[in-house]
């Protein structure tokens, strides 16, 4: 499971800024928002049923968990003139 995400981006003045995002902190925020997330998930399921897109809730949860667990080591770096950023997952 990822522990830390670092985001490094170039500001308009040319200087670089780095952000360290602890994943545990994000999980705590998600936990606080969990009542809303449950409602959103239920809403999504109902909309899916109405439009005929039946998705297994547990399957989707498991799939997202696998994606989350596989994230460490991922790196995305783009440097294109004004836009430059680097995202790394540890």
């Amino acid at each position: 499971m990822p522990q830390l995400v670092t985001v490094r981006y170039r500001r308009p003045d040319g200087r670089w800024r780095r952000l360290f995002i602890p994943v545990l902190l994000v999980l705590v925020v998600l936990l606080m928002l969990s009542p809303l997330l449950v409602l959103a998930a239920l809403g999504g399921l109902i909309v899916g049923r109405v439009y005929g897109y039946r998705v297994s809730f547990l399957g989707a949860l498991g799939g997202l968990g696998q994606v989350l667990w596989a994230l460490p080591g991922a790196r995305l770096e783009i440097d294109d003139g004004q836009t430059a950023f680097l995202i790394r997952v540890f």
Binding site: Q66, A70, A74, E77, D80
Partner: peptide, 21 residues
């Protein structure tokens, strides 16, 4: 312009499993 992407193969596997959904 530079793009440098490193994707864990495990992430590709997890993504592939998502397609079954």
């Amino acid at each position: 312009s530079r793009i440098n992407i490193r994707v864990p193969l495990q992430l590709l596997r997890a993504g592939v499993r998502l397609t079954s959904l």
